[in-house]
Amino acid sequence: MQVFFAAVARVSWLMAAAVKLILAAIVIEVVADVVLRNLNLRPISWGVSATEYGLVYAAFLPMPWLVHIKGHVFVEFLRKALPIPARAVLERIVYAACVILCLYITVFAVNSFFDALRTGAYETRTFDMPKWAIVAPVCLGFFFSALEWCRFLLGFESLYDVDPLEQEGL
C-alpha cells in the first residue's frame, strides 16, 4: 500500500512540476509577445490562446499534489463544534465524500474525453484546440485526487493535524 501511494504521489508531483514549466513558458511567451510588438514585428498569433489553455492546465493538474501536501484551503467551523471522538468519524466521512466526488467527476470527464476523441470536437479561439486536450487535465486531476484522498481515508495522513503552535482556530 505504501509503495502504491508513493507511486501515486510521484505522478501527482510530476503533474505539478509540469504546471511549473507551463507557468515558466507563459512568462516567456508574454515577454516575447511584448518585445516583438514593440520592435514592430509580428507578435505570436497563437500566444494568447495558448496561455489561456495553459491556465486551464494550471487549474487542474496541480490538484492531486495539492491534496497530497494539504494545499487546498479549508475551514472547520462546524467540525470544531463536535466532540473529539465525533470529529474522528467526521474526518473519515469527509475523506470518503472527497473520494466519491472525485471519482464521480472523473467518470464524466473521461466520458467526455473519449467522446471528444471519437467526434474530433474542438474549441475555436485563435487556433482550433482539440477538446480532448482540454478535458485531459480534468480527468487526470480528479482521478489522481481521488487516489490521494484514499491515502487520507485509509489513515496514512490527516488533513487537520496542523502543528498546534501554528493552529489559529476555526
Binding site: A24, T51, E52, Y53, L55, V56, A59, I105, F108, I134
Partner: peptide, 29 residues
C-alpha cells in the same frame, strides 16, 4: 442533472482559460 454535469466540465475552460487571469501566477512568480 447529468447533462448539467457534462456541461460543467465543458465550462471549465471558459471559467479559468481567460487571459485576464494570467497576471496572478506571473506576479506570484
Amino acid at each position: 442533472g447529468s447533462v448539467g454535469v457534462d456541461q460543467m466540465i465543458s465550462n471549465f475552460s471558459a471559467a479559468v482559460g481567460t487571459y485576464a487571469l494570467a497576471p496572478l501566477p506571473l506576479f506570484l512568480i
